[in-house]
């Protein structure tokens, strides 16, 4: 009896995770490409395979990874949240500002994350209630929140944060940076979440066909708002770590982060057309981008050229996504 039931379930799983469906939906090839890039860099550049370089690349990726958690699941539902970069900056700077004003750490961080959650809620609520294109709306909140972050940055005027906070991002767990540990744990948790939970299947369903999801009684509005809040909060957590890492208020913080996220998420198997997305892939996508940028620095390509490369990669991955998506239909 048991085995019969299991056999009935497996084909459904194979349909989702079978790998033949779309760019990057199978994580393995992406992992191989990333590994190939890493091996290539290690073979050609002696500075690459050093412990300090690898550690700093991984550390950077692990912080950005925190911000992409919610972002990926927003994309699964055919929405997008371009305000992540600004929320990232605002939360980090707000925590820093409160700490400079002699608040204890946890209340300051919680207040900042509360503000982030509020921004996420506003995004989600407006999108759901007025049926607005989330691209447009989050460009607006991106500008608005960026302005607020710059207000804070100017009021701080380049002051460094308190010492205890500057040490925060350098917290180690088992001799590894805590964010790297968090990343590994989160990837494993996401694996389970995407395989086992009904919520993730509902999200995919919403991304594939909103109307049908509504008709089948899925609480679309609630799930979407939840995802937007999650996206802002995870961006906020990443922002707190980054603020601690860069030690002072910088108006450039989180600039263009949202486009790195879109590119990484699409490389990792998400789609602008919704219904797909994989946090493991997103993590690999971020790692791949970080390796490419790291390699460009190793090969002495002008740093100003990075902007160009990110733009080109964005168009290329989305073009790939679009062409494959058209073929699937």
């Amino acid at each position: 009896m048991m085995s019969q039931q299991l056999e009935q379930i497996t084909p459904v799983r194979r349909f989702r995770f079978g790998g033949a469906r779309g760019f990057g939906s199978n994580v393995l090839p992406l992992a191989l490409v990333t590994a190939a890039v890493a091996v290539f860099l290690a073979a050609t550049q002696p500075n690459f395979a050093t412990a300090s370089n690898l550690n700093s690349v991984l550390f950077g990726v692990s912080i950005e990874f925190l911000a992409i958690i919610g972002f990926t699941y927003v994309m699964v539902m055919r929405e997008i949240d371009l305000s992540v970069g600004s929320v990232f900056a605002l939360t980090g700077m707000l925590t820093g500002t409160l700490l400079v004003a002699d608040w204890p750490f946890w209340p300051a961080a919680l207040v900042a994350l509360g503000v982030a959650a509020l921004i996420g809620f506003i995004n989600g609520f407006l999108v759901v209630r007025f049926n607005i294109n989330s691209l447009m709306l989050t460009i607006g909140t991106m500008l608005l929140v960026r302005g607020l972050a710059n207000v804070l940055a100017n009021s701080l005027g380049g002051q460094t944060y308190p010492r205890a906070f500057r040490q925060f991002a350098r917290t180690d767990l088992f001799d590894i940076r805590i964010t790297i540990v968090v990343m590994v744990v989160a990837v494993l948790a996401a694996w389970v979440f995407q395989r086992q939970s009904a919520l993730f299947r509902k999200m995919c369903f919403i991304g594939e066909n909103v109307r049908s999801a509504v008709l089948h009684g899925i609480r679309v509005g609630r799930i979407k708002i939840l995802a937007f809040v999650l996206s802002s909060v995870t961006a906020g957590i990443a922002g707190i770590f980054t603020a601690s890492r860069i030690t002072h208020a910088d108006t450039q913080m989180g600039m263009g982060l949202e486009f790195v996220m879109v590119t990484a998420a699409i490389i990792g198997g998400a789609s602008l057309y919704g219904g797909r997305g994989d946090l493991r892939g997103s993590a690999l996508g971020l790692l791949l981008l970080a390796l490419v940028l790291n390699g460009m620095i190793m090969f002495d390509i002008e740093p100003v050229f990075q902007q160009f490369v990110i733009g080109a990669l964005l168009i290329a991955t989305v073009a790939f996504d679009t062409v494959l998506n058209r073929r699937a239909k």
């Binding site: 691209l135 263009g256 486009f259 879109v262 602008l272 002008e302 100003v304 050229f305 990075q306 902007q307 160009f308 490369v309 990110i310 733009g311 080109a312 964005l314 168009i315 989305v318 073009a319 679009t322 062409v323 058209r326």
Partner: peptide, 25 residues
Amino acid sequence: LGINHLIVTLGVLYMTRGVIEVVMS
């Protein structure tokens, strides 16, 4: 190619700004 116009023009915005930086460096 039928690519989302927001992504295309945003990518081009980034690429063009990158080229401007390189030219003006």
